[in-house]
């Protein structure tokens, strides 16, 4: 199966406060197991597992930057894959991206793909 690459420039998050923490919260549904990895602004590799939350950076660090996120997933129970990425600023979700529901990239998601890997970018302004 292919790696699903979301359209670049699709996901933009407006950061309201330079001092606020921007977090990524990862939720999955229907038995999906997933992990998302990314490099933060200092080029440290970070990773969040489903059900977890991790700091992406501060508002000041992120403004004007684009970060690549890579997700790997699977559903041993055979159910549908559903992974919700919530980008929070001061614990308020400012951007929500759910794979594959919001996916518009290429190639199209194969419904029978049991372990999709996907890439998306978020631009912070």
């Amino acid at each position: 199966m292919a790696v699903y690459i979301e359209k670049s420039g699709k996901l933009v998050m407006k950061v309201n406060n330079d001092h606020s923490e921007v977090m990524l919260k990862l939720n999955t549904y229907h038995g999906t197991i997933a992990t998302v990895s990314f490099y933060d602004i200092l080029n440290n590799e970070k990773m969040v597992h489903y059900g977890g939350k991790i700091q992406v950076g501060t508002g000041k660090q992120l403004k004007g930057k684009t970060i690549v996120f890579v997700g790997a997933s699977g559903n041993p129970d055979g159910g549908q894959i559903k992974i919700e990425h919530l980008f929070l600023e001061n614990n308020i979700a400012e951007l929500e991206y759910t794979f594959p529901n919001h996916y518009t990239g290429s190639p199209a998601v194969e419904p029978q793909d049991e372990q999709p890997t996907y890439i998306f970018t978020v631009t912070f302004i």
Binding site: V3, T35, S37, V68, Q115
Partner: peptide, 18 residues
Amino acid sequence: QYKKLTSYNSSLILRATA
């Protein structure tokens, strides 16, 4: 083990992309 391999998968594709 499956959770660990899923995280390795994510990490290696990120490294390759970079």
